[in-house]
Write a protein that binds this DNA or RNA. Sequence first.
DNA 1: TAATTATCGGTAACCGGTTACAGATAGTTT
DNA 2: AAACTATCTGTAACCGGTTACCGATAATTA
Lengths: 324, 324
Amino acid sequence: MASIRDVAKYASVSVATVSRVLNDKGYVGAETRKKVEAAIAELNYRPNEVARSLFKKQSKTIGLILPDIMNPFFPELARAIEDTASKLGYTVILCNSDEDEEKAQRYIDVLLQKYVDGIIISSNTILEKTIRELNIPVVCIDREISKDIPTIVVDNKKGARMATRFLKEKGRRKIAHIRGPIDIVNANERCEGYREVVSGEQWFNESYIVNGNYRMETATEVVLELLRQHPEIDGIFAANDTMAIGAMKAAYQHGLKVPEEISIIGFDGIALGKASIPELTTIEQPLYKLGQTAAKVLIKLIKGQDIEKTFYQFDVQLVERDST
Amino acid sequence: MASIRDVAKYASVSVATVSRVLNDKGYVGAETRKKVEAAIAELNYRPNEVARSLFKKQSKTIGLILPDIMNPFFPELARAIEDTASKLGYTVILCNSDEDEEKAQRYIDVLLQKYVDGIIISSNTILEKTIRELNIPVVCIDREISKDIPTIVVDNKKGARMATRFLKEKGRRKIAHIRGPIDIVNANERCEGYREVVSGEQWFNESYIVNGNYRMETATEVVLELLRQHPEIDGIFAANDTMAIGAMKAAYQHGLKVPEEISIIGFDGIALGKASIPELTTIEQPLYKLGQTAAKVLIKLIKGQDIEKTFYQFDVQLVERDST
DNA sequence: TAATTATCGGTAACCGGTTACAGATAGTTT
DNA sequence: AAACTATCTGTAACCGGTTACCGATAATTA
């Protein structure tokens, strides 16, 4: 590959001049510029990004740390982030942390060594202190760590209220909730939203809230048990779509028809919901928008620009399909 | 961040010595080594990967170019590749090409500028010549471009035969096939496998093969039309799971029960198949294994090691669930 | 004891960009 | 004509690693 010195030699100018036309910086005469451009074209020269990174101490690369790209919730976020970053001239390194703090920490170390300009992370295990010590911009997505770190989320509580109220409006009398992991903020918020709506009801009882872990199989198990213990249940609000599908399976196994005998609503709006039969009613997050915003905000921070706020909360939308 | 010169100064040795203990190369006295290690620990020194890359002309980074990470087929591959690369000390840059050759080419340019050590690509638009000109190792996954480029795929034709025969064994008499895009090799191979099994049947007729594009909605449309024209059809082999789900939806819309009145089998073995109701019978690819192999082979090539073969074809497995 | 070899450590150039600084030329002002 | 300014270009140091090469010391051999 041709280097900047080759180009300089070919155009009979100095490397400084070539660098100037490359970066459109400082004075360059029209004639000289033309010569240099011709040389660049002729030699098919592309500046070496690594050398540039070394001097500039930045790499036009961002790190993306997700729990697991195989979790169907994340691909759309990842796609939006990659699209946006790419449009703005950045490249993204993908990391799967498996919700494991140590693993996340190792990834962070590697990313720092590679001079990434910033990190987008979805994690509930990482500590605020750790992030603050990085000295590069970080934005959190889907999971909130601290009000001081820029965060992109949806209004989980409101969404949960919408979901629960919707089941009531559909005439459901006994509505259960399959919640997400206790250490994940959004799971608690969704549970809280559900509570706000049902806590006044005389039928409500703590055993209507069962623990899930955002995974399908577990949801099927716990819902099966729930239905055995509470045959009166005719509505389920699952804290995510994956568990909602699991709940649908449990309902079928228990001999209940969806939506005739029991209504099920999810949360997230992942593609999976459109693949189930019947298609899943859900509280849809603007996933692409979230990812896009995360990338935009991060890159603004990288460039040292101001951001309007540190907490971006988007609205969710009820998408009625066939499971309610 | 501390540099190697800081460490050298702190340990009262030269930078060369520090580099030697860092890389375990050349002679270093036991005493000296200890001093240096202490200094490294004390200053919390981490070598700058960018500087190293510049000199070594390699970055411990690989590029992964996929059509679209939102396509549920790819996350598992991506995960396997990332896991494996990470274990071997490599980092992966994610790129979504949208099957667009120009976009892929732009990504390749960027990756080259960043000195990636190799590329894993899934594409049918990119040309062999383009790849050969890169001068860095490339391996293809899922899609075959040329016998000369290391490729990781499954035995599509065999899988297709298995699927079709399985439907016959289940007593299905009129079996249709929803094929994938004509410009994708694996779609053609799967179609070929189907053909081999049914072409001898007297009922077989070209109109039993309909064109899909690996997407659900389209599959639903074409299958609906197919069922209208051929009410005798009692079995469908879809070239991928996503279309199989689409076919199931069409069957329901057409008033057919799955699997009682019509059997449907897919191909790929993506997680989606386990989320549908009824769960999808499919020809499962060892996706994780494929990704893992791609990463291993690529890294071997990067290190200049020999690889056993240039064409890795894995076996598929029939996973019987509830749609047949 | 002298010569040879193994071990150890330092100096400086290099990877391929960027940029501070200085020097040269041309045009303008007094 | 002298002084000054605006425009243009080049030299060399720097980013933070790696490594070729050289010199010094200690251990071994003749």
